[in-house]
Nucleic acid binder design. Sequence first.
DNA 1: GAAATTCTTGCAATTTTTTGCAATTAAATT
DNA 2: AATTTAATTGCAAAAAATTGCAAGAATTTC
Lengths: 248, 248
Amino acid sequence: MLKEERHQVILNEVRIHNKVLLADIAEILKVSQDTVRRDIKELHDKNKLKRVHGGAISLGFNHYSYVNREIYSLEKKSRIAEKAVSLLKDGQVILLSGGTTNLEIARLIPPYLKITCFTPSLPIAMQLLPKPNIEIIVIGGKINKDSQIAVGGSPIGALAELKADICFLGVNSIHPVEGVTELYWEIVQVKKAMIKASKKVVVPSISEKINSEQRYKICGLDAVDLLITELDESDPQLEVYKQSIELL
Amino acid sequence: MLKEERHQVILNEVRIHNKVLLADIAEILKVSQDTVRRDIKELHDKNKLKRVHGGAISLGFNHYSYVNREIYSLEKKSRIAEKAVSLLKDGQVILLSGGTTNLEIARLIPPYLKITCFTPSLPIAMQLLPKPNIEIIVIGGKINKDSQIAVGGSPIGALAELKADICFLGVNSIHPVEGVTELYWEIVQVKKAMIKASKKVVVPSISEKINSEQRYKICGLDAVDLLITELDESDPQLEVYKQSIELL
DNA sequence: GAAATTCTTGCAATTTTTTGCAATTAAATT
DNA sequence: AATTTAATTGCAAAAAATTGCAAGAATTTC
């Protein structure tokens, strides 16, 4: 294994978890802790991460980002996104709707993965920009400012020509009877088109959104193939979903 | 076996695996490791891959630090953008290509102005998001990572249906004889479509770009209605443009 | 403040790179 | 066509780098 590869793995781990333990990296890379220590020292000198006793932490890991993570339940979303990203394979074509959980997925997609991402979401497209191996295709149209995604006839038309391997469908609410529901009519239309345009529909959702419902229906639970939450598989809240949906 | 052939093989291996070991390549090509080493050194000098101890690694891999466009001429761009924004009126439909000067225009558009902005540029769309009175329509498509705009057939098709009042055409180079030229072919195609889709073409350009030229031609000076620079109207550099173009 | 963990330093084994050199091949010149 | 010149390639020895280990120093943790 090249030194450069180790460096990339370390930086990737730091990017995802905001910190790494020296011992963990040594285990992952199957090299001695001394080697990892030297690697971290080097990356520290290059200002790619901050070396600390016992490992390293992300440069951007400051008080501000820490507080933010807590307030917006990003911690949960991050765990969900990690699971979601583990589904991805080289060569796939995926479809990402908007939302903060999907944004977190976009952030965590490893830079070496060669996939094609369709998205109507501006922040997600921006998030993907620096990843060299990812082909980004923005689904254009009138931008809904709340959700920051394209809506209207144009994206729906564009989606009609697509068949993606996986659609990560960010949802507002999911309910055992009402299915997946949404607050805005125009967003419902786009998400319906996204479901049609995909072989597999994956819903990444924090537990707060589970068992809630909104005004407009996107689809029933039968249209959803996989539900990803931060909860444990055995959690009683998830019991009702187990019948119709696979869980992760 | 020609050196060029070996180079192709090496680059291909790097492209596929993101890295190569010197010993592996020597084995594949049936040449000495020294030869491979020299090849890799050469390709490194040509900036086609990154030479590292034990082999080579793909370039874009750790491109996480993003290419910062020249922040220096921001002052000029700001002055140009101010002039450009003064052209805008309520109710207009405008078309913004990419580029930092146009991004500055987007930033300076007053929030009370009620206009519709079409753009294939992700950063510009993001910049416009918080302005409540501006309707944003993103022209979607495959994203060119350098320019961060959508390129290809999809945006060109979308533009064919549009007639905007003004197009702010960010340019790479403008020349009295060669006209407006660009470095990348796929961007040329989009910009041509943008010109067709607009009643009036405005080129905001810092003086450094004036009188330079690139490989591909977008249009002649006759297609440009207005040139905005930071220079004074009486500047001798602008003399040649006065005949065919209005200045601001 | 004692125990546990982590870090530093020096060292040796291994791997990789550099350098000079000679043999071969290709290109240019007469 | 023959000769010269330049470029390419492989080899070998020396230099440099990487890596893991161990012992003592420093830091953290309880």
